[in-house]
Write a protein that binds this DNA or RNA. Sequence first.
DNA 1: TGTAAACTTTACGCAGTGTCAAGTGGCATC
DNA 2: GATGCCACTTGACACTGCGTAAAGTTTACA
Lengths: 196, 196
Amino acid sequence: MPDDGVSTRERILRACWALLEQGQGAKTRMSDIAKASGVSRQAVYLHFSTRAELLIAVTRFVDAESDIDARLAASRAATSGLERLDAFLDAWGNYIPVVHPVCRALLDMAPDDDAAKLAWDDRMAALREGCVAAVLALKADGNLRDDHDEAAAADLLWTLLSVSNWESLVEDCHWSQARYIEEMKRLARQALMPTG
Amino acid sequence: MPDDGVSTRERILRACWALLEQGQGAKTRMSDIAKASGVSRQAVYLHFSTRAELLIAVTRFVDAESDIDARLAASRAATSGLERLDAFLDAWGNYIPVVHPVCRALLDMAPDDDAAKLAWDDRMAALREGCVAAVLALKADGNLRDDHDEAAAADLLWTLLSVSNWESLVEDCHWSQARYIEEMKRLARQALMPTG
DNA sequence: TGTAAACTTTACGCAGTGTCAAGTGGCATC
DNA sequence: GATGCCACTTGACACTGCGTAAAGTTTACA
């Protein structure tokens, strides 16, 4: 533990996070990260054996720092299905902008790197669990369309909530975050519930 | 012009296409393509100065070979807005599986390569034009929701029709192509038209 | 004084892209 | 039949970025 009480490992994680946040996701090199952390390139490898491992660690770090669990608590506490759906959309939809830079970096290296792909798939599997839970809550209220089963409904919701769709609307189409959330809520209701 | 009457350039394009179709998009190297074309690696560079340029040429080649224009003709010929929307969804939705391997390869290199990114954005801009046309046709019929303007409606449709969403439903969730098209049509109507 | 942990420095191996220069074989033209 | 061009081959090389290896430095602690 050097100067301040913060560990080198954490300095690297924060520096990497900061770099990813200022764009250039896929172009962020190990040497850039080392420089930004004020540490040698080799020191980075002392803590994270590959670039993929570092990026995965950063996503976990961001999850912890931004307390994703607290965000999701409201959706689990909801009493009605619709309430749960809305709360889940609020939680996840508002979390996307926070993790997005890191997600993007991970996603960009996934086609090349099996570890990154695995980590991403894992994340998406967790998201899908939330979707299934929301769908089941709707169904319990008799508020699920009868023309698709729970799996299909979850597929649809999971697809709507993808990071790509957020990028498309917020980054490419310049929608505000609030508008994105609002429209997603409407879209999800229309897609899943019996009457508009 | 060697053995058969087909040019080396075309042999390379077809070989590249075939390789991309059998998976491993981002992992397809210039040397693999050369080998599959029965030509030296240098010969590939004689025809395409970079990997990005080659991939872009392949997308154009696939467009020409699969006659994307003919596919879109029906949507332009439609008389009503709804007809146009459906025809557009059929044309594009059924074209995705054809170009997908090539699109994926281009998309995978976009974060790293400006030329690839530009080519991709161009393609997406063309798709958006189709979306705008469909939205305007709906509006002409008085069949556009009044709670978003044409731009927002086009944004939404364009996002729904993304390659990522096709991948999500067809590849990840194992939906059939027919089911994908059907559900997209419903989703688009619900999102854009006044009454479900 | 010794030693162990954390980090630095320098160097290297490797894959893949893109470049360069010197061939080679066929085909056309004079 | 020599000349020359064209498309292509061969083999080498520079460059980037990842990951590894080995030896040295600093600090802290016993």
